[in-house]
Write a protein that binds this DNA or RNA. Structure first.
Lengths: 199, 199
DNA sequence: GTCTATAAGAAGATAGAC
DNA sequence: GTCTATCTTCTTATAGAC
């Protein structure tokens, strides 16, 4: 199992100064705002005051950067959502706080979360399966949360989950500040689904 | 009001043979599958057996092609959805058939619809406002359909619409044939929303 | 209306000096 | 660890022959 470096915050810093984190932050920001194809190695480098050639000292390709960004995105989102649900008992309330955490992440300040929800795996075909696997590993949280709900027999859990996540991930395309708070959007989405589907 | 050529099927063909339509079809297909940045003028030309230089006889830029594709997408989707709802009386049933028509378009064989729902306006910043306006003109159908529903007072119509359309437009990221039919997905989505929100 | 040819620039990536 | 310099390829777009 090679290439385990960004799976969690690791103690062993590769060499002396760690310039990888700033580079990944820059890449996440640019990927989130300009897309994968729309972001160049020059953009990423210059965002941290580095020339394009130097970026290749830290990452051997653009794909490798996307992979590392995705990995951190999954780790950060998972952590955030799991912390939120740990404080709750009621299964509907758990789902509610999970969607709130998810939505706040993709709306506010978390470029990593936006990359994971916005950049579709097929944009980088060579690493498509790795990206998809990482997405699924995050969405597994929602699989479990929804399995714990007391739902009517004729509700398709998978469809229910995909509907909710699809709606959530589309929010950033129309969201603008002042309209309605992310937490409230999440509450409303759950509310619009709950009464129809609860057993 | 210049540039009205592709608003509807127009009688006055620009010159003799009309090679614009095949070019737009090719562009729609490529934009839908490889994205706007991921599609080149070479790709578009070679898809209809034309060299890149020749494409510029018909369209002066890549942006202009995207604009024309979007225009046809709106026209085709609008027509399709409006035909579907014209046959119905009940407001919930109207919304149901509209979502079915929308979903079938983006799942099956309609590359134009996929371009409109997949390519976000900000991917082509110079024509962003035109693209957004076209999207809104299509979504206005759903604004009206939802306004006609007998909804509880505390349901936010706008949020309801964005939730539904967000869920619908995300279907193509996970849909695969044999799983469940597009029409059924649309029915289920409406069903999951109806009981919670109906007055 | 399509071709050839090419401009002019930007992309991902590498080699080697410092 | 970063820079300079560069290779190679690909990009959008244009000019002019046919």
């Amino acid at each position: 199992m090679p290439n385990e470096k960004a799976n969690k915050p690791s103690k062993k810093v590769k060499r002396s100064h760690n310039r990888e984190q700033p580079l990944l932050d820059a890449a996440a920001k640019l990927f989130a705002h300009k897309g994968y194809k729309g972001t160049t190695m020059r953009d990423i480098g210059s965002e941290v005051g580095m020339l394009p050639g130097s970026v290749y000292y830290h990452f051997k390709s653009k794909q490798e950067i996307l992979l590392a960004v995705y990995k951190l995105a999954v780790y950060s989102l998972k952590t955030r959502v799991e912390e939120a649900i740990a404080e709750q008992e009621d299964p509907w309330r758990k789902l509610e706080v999970a969607t709130q955490a998810h939505l706040e992440a993709i709306i506010n300040k978390n470029d990593y979360a936006q990359v994971m929800t916005e950049i579709k795996p097929h944009k980088a075909p060579e690493i498509r399966s790795e990206l998809t696997a990482m997405r699924n590993s995050y969405e597994a949280i929602f699989v479990n949360l929804i399995n714990e709900l007391p739902l009517k027999r004729d509700i398709n859990n998978k469809l229910f989950r995909l509907m909710l996540l699809g709606a959530l991930n589309s929010v950033k395309t129309w969201f603008q500040l002042g309209d309605i708070a992310p937490e409230d959007i999440a509450c409303e989405f759950i509310r619009y689904l709950r009464e129809s589907s609860e057993a």
